[in-house]
C-alpha cells in the first residue's frame, strides 16, 4: 500500500474537521478525494504531507509513518498545494533549479522525468514565475513537485480556478505520471473529475462517505436515479415531479432533471405518468448514479 489512513480524526476547537477516516491506496493508483469546499480535504492532505498532526489515528505515506518518519516522507513525496507555491520573483528555470537543489538533485539528473510537462513552459524559461498564466504556473508547480522523482504525488485542488482546457490537459498529465508508476492522490471539488480517477473517496463534513470505483457507485436504500430531459424549460416540470409522491424527489442538474426514487416507488407507474405528460422532446430513463447524485442523496439524508 502506498498510502494508508487509519481512523484519522482531527478537530479545530469545536469544529470536527475529520471524523474517523480510513482508506488505503495501492501503489500506482490515481485516487481522487472528492468533496465540496470545507469537507476536510485540505486538512487530511496536510496531515498526510506532515504539516499537521492528527488528534487520533495513524497514516503512512510511501510506507512511512507520517508522525515518526516525516523526514523520510518529505524525501519521497511530491506535494502541490492549492495555491501554487512558486517564487514569483524567480524565473521559471530558477524555480525549478531551486526545488531540485532543495531535494538534493539536479535538473539534468531528472530532466527526462519532467520533460513532458516542463517542455510546455521551457520556451519561457527566463520569464518570472509571477508573470506566467494560470495554466503555465500550474505546469511549473507540477514540474517542481516532480523534479525529485517522488514515489507519491499529492495534489490539493490543483484544478481549482483553472480554465476547462487547462483542466483537461492537467488530468492527461496526471494520467501520464501515473503510468510512470507514481501513486497520485488528488483532491477536487469538481464532481465531473471523479470519472477520471481509478477510485474516488467521497468526503463531506469530515466524514468519508464512500470509497469506490467512480462507475460503480451505488446509492443507499435502493434509491434509483432517472434522467429527465426536455427541449422545453425543465424548471416547469420540477415541482410537478416532486408532487407525484412523497418518496420522489427531483433536482436540477444543469439543463436536465435527476429524479430520485425511494424503495417504495413503483417505477413502472412513474414511467407511465411521465410519458403521459405532453413534454417536448422528452428524454426519460434510468441512469447510473453519478458522484453528484451520490452527494445529492447524502445531503438529503442528513439535512443541516
Amino acid at each position: 500500500m502506498s498510502v494508508t489512513v487509519e481512523h484519522i480524526t482531527k478537530s479545530f476547537g469545536d469544529v470536527r474537521a475529520l471524523r474517523d477516516i480510513s482508506f488505503s491506496i495501492p501503489e500506482g493508483e490515481l485516487f481522487g478525494l472528492i468533496g465540496p469546499d470545507g469537507a476536510g480535504k485540505t486538512t487530511l492532505f496536510r496531515i498526510l504531507v506532515t504539516l499537521l498532526l492528527a488528534d487520533e489515528g495513524q497514516a503512512t505515506v510511501a510506507g512511512y509513518d507520517v508522525k515518526k518518519a516525516y523526514r523520510k516522507i518529505r524525501e519521497l513525496m511530491g506535494y502541490m498545494a492549492g495555491r501554487f507555491s512558486l517564487y514569483h520573483d524567480l524565473s521559471v528555470r530558477e524555480n525549478l533549479e531551486f526545488y531540485a537543489t532543495v531535494f538534493g538533485t539536479t535538473i539534468r539528473e531528472n530532466y527526462d522525468f519532467v520533460k513532458d510537462i516542463y517542455s510546455h513552459i521551457e520556451p519561457y524559461e527566463d520569464r518570472l514565475a509571477g508573470r506566467l498564466s494560470g495554466g503555465m504556473k500550474q505546469k511549473l508547480a507540477l514540474s517542481c513537485a516532480l523534479i525529485h522523482r517522488p514515489k507519491v504525488l499529492i495534489l490539493d485542488e490543483p484544478t481549482t480556478g483553472v480554465d476547462a482546457v487547462s483542466r483537461k490537459e492537467f488530468w492527461d498529465m496526471l494520467k501520464k505520471i501515473q503510468r510512470e508508476g507514481i501513486t497520485v492522490l488528488v483532491s477536487t471539488p469538481y464532481m465531473d473529475e471523479a470519472a477520471l480517477c481509478d477510485r474516488v473517496g467521497l468526503i463531506q463534513k469530515g466524514n468519508l462517505l464512500a470509497v469506490s470505483d467512480p462507475s460503480e457507485l451505488e446509492l443507499s436504500n435502493g434509491t434509483k436515479v432517472f434522467r429527465f430531459g426536455t427541449s422545453g424549460r425543465p424548471y416547469d416540470y420540477l415541482q410537478r415531479i416532486r408532487n407525484l409522491d412523497a418518496q420522489v424527489d427531483a433536482w436540477l442538474f444543469g439543463d436536465e432533471i435527476h429524479v430520485f426514487t425511494g424503495a417504495g416507488v413503483d417505477c413502472g407507474e412513474l414511467d407511465r405518468t411521465v410519458q403521459s405528460w405532453d413534454v417536448p422532446d422528452l428524454e426519460w430513463g434510468e441512469a447510473t448514479p453519478s458522484v453528484e447524485d451520490y452527494f445529492m442523496q447524502k445531503m438529503r439524508e442528513e439535512p443541516e
Binding site: V49, T50, L51, R71, R74, E75, M77, Y79, A81, R83, S85, L86, Y87, H88, Y99, V102, F103, G104
Partner: peptide, 13 residues
C-alpha cells in the same frame, strides 16, 4: 503569505 514557506517545510531541507 505566498505559501512558499509551507512548501519549503515539506521538503527535506
Amino acid at each position: 503569505e505566498l505559501g512558499t514557506a509551507e512548501q519549503m517545510n515539506v521538503t527535506p531541507m
